[in-house]
Amino acid sequence: MAWLNNAATRDEVLANLPNYQAGFNALYATLWQLKEIPAQTLELCRLRIAQLHRCELEWQREELAIPPAQREALQNWPTSALFNEAQQACLAFTEIYTMDPQAISDEQADAVKKAYGEAGLVALIEALGLFYGLTRLTQLWGLTSTCEGVSS
């Protein structure tokens, strides 16, 4: 439960500012309809950020369905045969982005561009920013006691 207004969900927190909520929801909804990068790939990256933050609430959230076997194998994506080359490139980028965006290598960026082009890389980076931020707000607002947390 959020300490700032007893809200239990992100929507309940944002409902305190209805004139922003609609705009934010529209921005977030756009991520799942981009032509530059598949929504399923973005969902895998969002879930990986949740794992890296040890945030149970964001891990349990489902923005769109992905195969259960892929969800189960996500933590071991580098050695799993369930992820294609493009997904692996994005997950590798996601991990380093989450830890420190200054540490991203040109090779990691090139691997994403090889899969989805320059616009795909920009779309991925923008989406990761929102996923990263929303995960941290979930934790900061205290929306779940099972968000154990990591430092940046």
Partner: peptide
Amino acid sequence: LLLFNTFSRCAVALG
């Protein structure tokens, strides 16, 4: 803060 952080990290990640 969410928007500021998103786009500053974006600028860094784009090199």
